[in-house]
């Protein structure tokens, strides 16, 4: 009985170590291939279009409503202390430092990350990845490398878009709906935000790009290792990709914030 428990525990630990090793090799192979000629410009543009351009609407929309909620909540919280004039500052700092990068990464995970995992997962179960190998094409270079570059380009830009629409949302709820002077709102936004806040947000967005893309592509790529096969395996890898990406976004957010503050 005890031996069995220890064996099972040991097997789980070995499995985790194997997974960590596999994901590290996957990540390093993919990133090393960024510098291998020929550059995959067409594929990078294609994926930037999918991850970046096609996410713009949903990012702008969520950014706008996040800003509106922040404006609304912030106004009534600050009102208690008679500091409602600082609403612009509160909205800007919260968005640019924290919510912008984190919410953008979560929204891209939901929209593009899940699609990456599902697409690569289907390629795995339909032997398309094996077909690449038989044609002497590195599947990691072909599937992962262009996506990670596209993500590193897209995430910071989408974060900036989220921030702009968030500030606009805060302006609509704080100034237009609750009556804070629009010049005061804009002035506090501009005066409170430093260049370091903006670059810090972009650092976070870049790290999230790497985290999300690596996890989502990895989950799809190794779909065949799940106990469930076929469509169920793909559904499992997609779910895992989204859940793990979100968890690691929050973990890495804390770590980066710890070093930035």
């Amino acid at each position: 009985m005890l031996v069995e428990i220890i064996e099972n525990f040991g097997a789980k630990i070995i499995k985790i170590i194997e997974s960590v090793g596999r994901i590290m090799i996957f990540f390093l192979t993919g990133t090393a291939n960024i510098f291998v000629l020929p550059f995959q410009f067409a594929k990078i543009i294609d994926h930037t279009w999918f991850i970046g351009t096609k996410s713009m609407f949903v990012i702008a929309l969520t950014g706008f409503f996040t800003g509106m909620v922040l404006g609304l909540q912030g106004y009534y919280s600050l009102l208690k202390y008679g500091s409602e004039a600082a609403l612009g500052s509160a909205v800007a700092m919260t968005l640019i430092r924290e919510l912008g990068p984190v919410f953008t990464a979560i929204m891209i995970t939901a929209r593009a990350g899940s699609a990456m995992a599902a697409e690569i997962g289907v390629m795995r179960i339909s032997e398309q990845i094996d077909a690449l190998k038989t044609m002497h094409i590195s599947p990691v270079r072909f599937l992962f490398t262009p996506r990670i570059i596209a993500s590193i380009i897209s995430f910071p830009l989408l974060t900036a878009l989220f921030n702009i629409f968030g500030l606009l949302g805060g302006f609509v709820s704080g100034s237009l709906m609750l009556g804070i002077n629009k010049y005061v709102y804009m002035d506090t936004v501009i005066s409170s935000v430093s260049v370091n806040d903006i670059t810090g947000g972009f650092y976070k967005a870049s790290v999230f790009a790497v985290v999300v893309t690596t996890i989502c592509c990895y989950q799809g790529f190794y779909t065949h290792l799940f106990k469930e096969f076929g469509a169920r395996g793909v559904s499992l890898s997609t779910t895992n990709a989204v859940v793990q990406s979100c968890i690691f976004i929050f973990i890495s957010d804390y770590i980066i914030t710890f070093f930035l503050v």
């Binding site: 289907v122 390629m123 339909s126 032997e127 398309q128 094996d130 077909a131 038989t134």
Partner: peptide
């Protein structure tokens, strides 16, 4: 070498 897969493995 070249390999022709049972289910073709064409890229959708």
């Amino acid at each position: 070498l070249s390999y022709m897969f049972q289910d073709n493995a064409l890229f959708d």
